[in-house]
Design a protein around this nucleic acid. Structure first.
Lengths: 224, 224
DNA sequence: CGCCGTATTGAAACACCTCAATGCAGGTGG
DNA sequence: CCACCTGCATTGAGGTGTTTCAATACGGCG
């Protein structure tokens, strides 16, 4: 089935019996654009795999400040917790399709199947690794460098029509809340990159990368 | 044994046989102050539990910028990876004692013992949660708020002589690299908190919290 | 007591933010 | 089909917070 490709990471090395058991109890949810899959602090009832669309993970404080923690693309696992509630909300940017697995079943099969547990741990590891990258970007980088960090991150997902075109389904405000900046600063940083000949703006939410090296140097968070 | 208290989280619900098997292959390492337990990108040969002292976890980029990812206290588990190399260095702030478990043995017993695996996942979860907090602080907070975030974090470890005294074994530069600021800004933020009557400076690296509410409000990262 | 690394303080430059106006694009209704 | 409306993006001007660079103060240790 076509679906299987999406689950490669989650279901790698997991016996077919367990996979199909999980699929049978799963539900496919359709999300209109800009709707919430679940809210911060809500009880974790399920874990999810994004099948279609783009979503963002956000966290808000009592003071009303919002931090975007990441953007997710088809195939991504959503809903890692280490509590019985979610520490973040998940909102769709585009129309999206999400497969939901009831958490009780998922936990039960995770306990039963070491491979599944291992895969969840591995996914958790790469999510964690992403968080460290973001810490580095927010702690050490200037505005235009942070924008490059985002461009590169999205580019590496390989979800554009062409290799050097980056689609940005989120608003400038979303980008700003991801990068710890304001919308205006993001806008100016983008213009600066354009003026420097690093990128070319196709439309508001699509840009062509002209100078790959500069983008990857400015955006890099791991020192190689 | 006194040691056991430290390992409560890691060894909770783990059969005694496995615990003692691990302890037998473990080695106790003594670190002088300001020495490295291991370096970023070095092969992960072991996992560690800090028994004494304070250490910090740092990550550097090719450009020479350094981001501190956290400070660890006795009982903390060190060395989570999802690769065969470390993505960060660990440096001691004070003299420290660290128990090292060879990674081959640890992985073997983790595969064998579900409880141990679960505990590692749980610890990973709280490390991850900390990273999200840091993202929020760096993305959304002003200098003096970030300092409160740090003060509160250390206070919550409960490792001071008194409940309202916070010991800061790290330098201002370390604090700055943790909070995404410069040393000077940290210094000024501390002075501001002092002037506002929020804290009282006992020595350079020890401060008394006078206004707990303000510190926790300014420093809070989860919106309650 | 004097030295050296760390911390503080000051002044000026710079980056980013805020507030406000304008521009642009997609969608709706006349 | 065009005009309008609305929400998002851009641009500008001015203010604020943070950094930078440099000088001074502090504190632990020989």
């Amino acid at each position: 089935m076509a679906l299987a490709a999406y689950y490669k990471r989650l279901f790698a090395d997991v016996p077919e019996a367990i996979v199909s058991e999980l699929e049978q109890v799963s539900v496919l949810r359709s999300l209109p654009p800009h709707s919430y899959l679940f809210d911060q602090y809500s009880t974790a009832r399920g874990v999810y795999v994004l099948e279609e669309g783009v979503i963002m993970i956000e966290r808000s404080s009592a003071a009303g400040r919002r931090q975007i923690l990441g953007f997710s693309y088809p195939g991504d696992f959503i809903g890692l917790t280490h509590n019985d509630y979610f520490e973040y909300s998940v909102q769709s940017l585009t129309a999206a399709q999400v497969r939901e697995f009831p958490i009780s079943e998922f936990d039960r099969l995770t306990d039963q199947c070491g491979e599944l547990k291992t895969n969840v741990t591995r996914i958790g590891g790469s999510v964690f690794s992403h968080a460290l990258d973001q810490v580095f970007a927010l702690g050490q980088k200037k505005a235009h460098e942070r924008v490059c960090y985002l461009l590169q991150e999205i580019r590496n997902r390989g979800v554009g029509p062409a290799d050097d075109i980056v689609e940005l389904p989120m608003t400038r405000q979303d980008m700003a809340d991801y990068l710890g900046l304001t919308m205006e600063t993001v806008s100016r940083a983008i213009r600066r990159l354009k003026n420097d000949g690093v990128i070319q703006i196709e439309t508001h939410n699509s840009m062509r990368i002209l100078d790959t090296d500069t983008v990857s140097t400015l955006g890099s968070v791991s020192g190689n």
